[in-house]
Amino acid sequence: MTDALLKPFYQIVTAPPRQWHPVLVHFPIVFLVVEAALLSLWRVTGKPGHEPLAYACLHASLWTMLIVAITGVHDAGLDLGAGNLLWLGLQDRWQQAFRWHSSITVHSWLALSLVAITAARLLWRKFVGPNALRGRQGWAYGLMTLIGLSILTAAGYVGGMISHK
């Protein structure tokens, strides 16, 4: 039992996965959910400590999201013959970009929308500061956060179907 529990900790080094996207994708998800939870806590309790933490989580979420997007392109190029995996993956994604019958296409567009919304929120917070969370702006910011979470749910649902293989 101990071995089974410890295996995931060392296996990532001794037997690295072929596809990194399914492994790393959990990081931005967790950061995004924790950020939303901290924002809600800040709204309810008004404790000033929650707000900068939420901002830090937003930063972490966006940057890990970009890494995860690159691994997604890399994984898409894995079984496309010889060549640069990122380039092959990009070519494949471009070719499939508007083929809505493919769940990976739907997943990619949802993920891109999420990156765009997260980047927009980060820029908003960066340039407006904590005022982005107050008054009418606060409501709009909260709405964008909720939309981001609903896209995250949809992207995760479709992505989960893909990794079902």
Binding site: H101, L146, I147, S150, M161, H164, K165
Partner: peptide, 26 residues
């Protein structure tokens, strides 16, 4: 506000069971 929220959030929830072709479950 609630109506606006529902209008913006619902499309994504409706899109969930979209008729995409995914690989079969093993």
């Amino acid at each position: 506000k609630i109506r606006l929220l529902l209008t913006l959030v619902c499309p994504f929830l409706i899109a969930l069971p979209s008729p995409t072709e995914a690989a079969l479950s093993p």
